[in-house]
Write a protein that binds this DNA or RNA. Structure first.
Lengths: 255, 255
DNA sequence: AACGCGCCATATCAAATGACACATCGCCCA
DNA sequence: TGGGCGATGTGTCATTTGATATGGCGCGTT
């Protein structure tokens, strides 16, 4: 075990891409063998993070890209006066730091919400990879477009929904995402430690009002959200309450 | 002139990419000659739209990609009960409809805010283009990452800023973007017709409160926003008020 | 000139949300 | 086992934001 300066611990274990554990996830589209060989060659190692550790720090110059192998992370922006906005949550298969492949400084931090493990790729070889392996490049563009769609949803939630709708929206979003990526069973319950303060910072609400909204949803039987788990007993009802379109997301590729 | 079913009018004029008018824009990074030849081959034509016409309609299956050649557009999402959230504004060089290259249905509509002209590309050849021309694919990924960063800014604005900060943020964002893309002169004034209702739907505020906030900013001398023009006499002061980081965006590539 | 229409401006009141204070609960740990 | 600590729950009040109504203004059309 050794620390690598960015936080997290690299260790000798390295999963071969050929036996990538993400392949078992129905919601993910596993690259074919040829592509996995390329990915294997691109990959420099793996790193583990414990809950609360930061993978990327806002304003830093990143030298790596990451793919979430297990666990959940969040990316967020801090304003000068201490306000924090959580931008999105990242689940297994998600690419972290694509922005840093193009920009000098990154505009957000990324922190582990649960203990997590990531694959590490060198940023300075990204351009060469894209030139020599267009199929992988295409999949990365796919991921970027999908991430853009997720942020679009977030903008709609913040701009048009009231507090209770936002909380219900986030609950459905997280549970669905977790089920798709194998983080939660298909029973509408996601066991994960999220504080009300984190929910508040994702939804642009005060902590107190977040608390009240959660309780209203609990009384209404729509969402039962504790610090340890999110339970959405009736996804359709919750979706309807939050004015979400029912969607069956197509399996997403990953690198 | 003939209509093409998606709204807008194609006409016989077609600018050769070799003499693309966007090349003259300092904020844009013109592809080299070889790439422009590829783009030329990919391009199927051009279409003009008048203010208010729709380029893409939410829920439809798009068959084309577009690049804004001149004018400004907005993309927005409609909820079932009529609420509208404007996601972003698109300036010359911006790619429209990348999402539709991957998804069956598009989640937003796109409408011309001013009279506008776009280059048209066939969606069904996008995959082949990406496979055979990795350099163009790389630039498209670059654009997607940049768009993602813009949506991130929007999320921060909606989640953490109050009404007046949001209006100031949007004014600075639009004026800066317009100056970078040659839509406005470098004098901090953007002459463009935007209604207060559109601003309200971008910022997640009511129309009345948007009006109040604009007037407060006008009285404070920070932003003078009329239906015909946005004037930001002191960009640094406005940025500071809205808690924005001063940024010099790198020139962006375009297709 | 008169009218209609879309948009801006303003007043008033209501509702949603935030701020602050404090009690409680669960959990870790000395 | 008791104390500290982080997190949730709740009461009260302040502030921000929304809803509704109304008037005015510019502009195009008849």
């Amino acid at each position: 075990m050794k620390s690598d300066g960015n936080g997290g611990r690299s260790n000798g274990d390295r999963t071969p891409c050929r036996t990538c554990p993400l392949s078992a996830t129905p919601g993910l589209l596993t690259p074919d063998e040829t592509q996995r060989a390329w990915i294997e060659a691109f990959k420099t190692g793996e790193t583990s993070f414990v809950r609360g550790e930061q993978i990327l720090r806002q304003g830093a110059r990143a030298t790596r890209l990451y793919t979430v192998l297990s666990g959940v992370m969040m990316r967020f922006r801090l304003l000068e006066d201490g306000r924090r906005q959580i931008i999105n949550f990242m689940f297994p298969g998600d690419l972290i730091g694509l922005q840093s492949a193009f920009d000098a400084e990154i505009s957000h931090s990324v922190e582990a919400l649960t203990d997590a493990r990531v694959c590490v790729f060198p940023r300075d070889r990204f351009f060469d990879l894209a030139m020599s392996h267009p199929r992988l490049s295409y999949d990365i563009t796919w991921l970027a477009a999908r991430e853009e769609a997720a942020l679009e949803e977030h903008i709609v939630a913040l701009g048009q929904r009231n507090a209770r709708e936002r909380v219900a929206w986030l609950a459905v979003f997280l549970v669905q995402r977790a089920m798709d990526t194998g983080v939660a069973a298909a029973d509408g319950v996601l066991r994960m430690t999220i504080t009300q303060g984190q929910v508040a910072d994702m939804l642009g609400l005060s902590l107190v009002h977040t608390n009240r909204s959660m309780q209203a949803l609990r009384r209404a039987g729509l969402v039962d959200w504790t610090i340890h788990a999110i339970a959405v007993p009736d996804m359709a009802a919750a979706r309807d309450f939050a004015q979400m379109e029912a969607e069956a997301p197509p399996p997403r590729p990953f690198i």
